[in-house]
Amino acid sequence: MTIRLPGAGGRLRTYEPRTAPLAVAPGTPFTSRTVFSAAHVVADPYADVSPDAPAAVDWDATLAFRRHLWSHGLGVAEAMDTAQRGMGLHWAGAAELIRRSAAEAKAVGGPIACGAGTDQITGGTLAGIRAAYEEQLAVVEDAGAQAIVMASRALAATATGPEDYLEIYGHLLRQSAEPVVLHWLGPMFDPALEGYWGAADLDAATDTFLEVIAAHPDKVDGVKVSLLDARRETDLRRRLPHGVRCYTGDDFHYPELIAGDEQGFSHALLGIFDPLGPLAAEAVRVLDTGDVTGFRALLDPTVELSRHLFQPPTRYYKTGVVLLAWLAGHQSHFAMVGGLQSARSLPHLARAYELADALGLFPDPRLAEERMKTLLSLYGVDQ
Rank of each mutant, 00 (worst) to 15 (best):
R239H: 02
R239I: 00
R239C: 08
R239P: 03
R239F: 00
R239A: 14
R239W: 08
L240R: 12
P241R: 06
P241M: 04
P241V: 11
P241Q: 06
P241C: 07
P241I: 06
P241T: 05
H242C: 02
H242L: 12
H242S: 15
H242G: 11
H242F: 06
H242K: 14
G243L: 07
G243F: 10
G243Q: 10
G243E: 02
V244R: 07
V244M: 09
V244K: 10
V244T: 11
R245V: 01
R245E: 13
R245W: 05
R245C: 00
C246N: 13
C246V: 11
C246P: 00
Y247Q: 09
Y247S: 08
Y247H: 08
Y247I: 05
Y247R: 07
T248Y: 10
T248S: 14
T248N: 05
G249P: 13
G249H: 07
G249C: 04
G249S: 06
D250W: 00
D250T: 03
D250P: 00
D250L: 03
D250F: 01
D251K: 07
D251A: 12
D251E: 15
D251M: 02
F252P: 09
F252G: 12
F252W: 15
F252N: 12
H253W: 04
H253G: 02
H253D: 14
H253M: 01
Y254I: 03
Y254W: 15
Y254N: 00
P255E: 05
E256A: 15
I258R: 02
I258G: 05
I258F: 01
I258N: 03
I258Y: 05
A259H: 11
A259P: 10
A259Y: 09
G260R: 01
G260L: 04
G260M: 04
D261W: 13
D261E: 09
D261I: 04
D261N: 14
D261A: 07
E262S: 13
E262W: 06
Q263C: 07
Q263L: 15
Q263K: 14
G264R: 02
G264N: 11
G264L: 10
G264Y: 05
G264Q: 12
G264E: 12
G264A: 08
F265S: 14
F265R: 10
S266N: 13
S266G: 01
H267S: 13
A268N: 01
L269F: 12
L269G: 08
L269N: 12
L269E: 08
L270M: 14
G271K: 07
G271Y: 07
G271L: 02
I272D: 05
I272H: 09
F273L: 14
D274M: 10
P275Y: 11
P275D: 10
L276S: 09
L276H: 01
L276V: 11
G277T: 06
G277I: 06
P278V: 08
P278K: 04
P278Q: 04
L279Q: 15
L279W: 03
L279V: 15
L279F: 02
A280F: 15
A280K: 08
A281W: 04
A281Q: 03
E282C: 07
E282A: 14
A283P: 00
A283I: 01
A283V: 01
R285D: 04
R285Y: 06
R285E: 08
V286H: 03
V286R: 14
V286Q: 12
L287E: 01
L287D: 06
L287C: 09
T289A: 13
T289Y: 10
T289N: 02
G290N: 09
G290T: 03
D291P: 04
D291Q: 12
D291G: 00
D291H: 02
V292P: 04
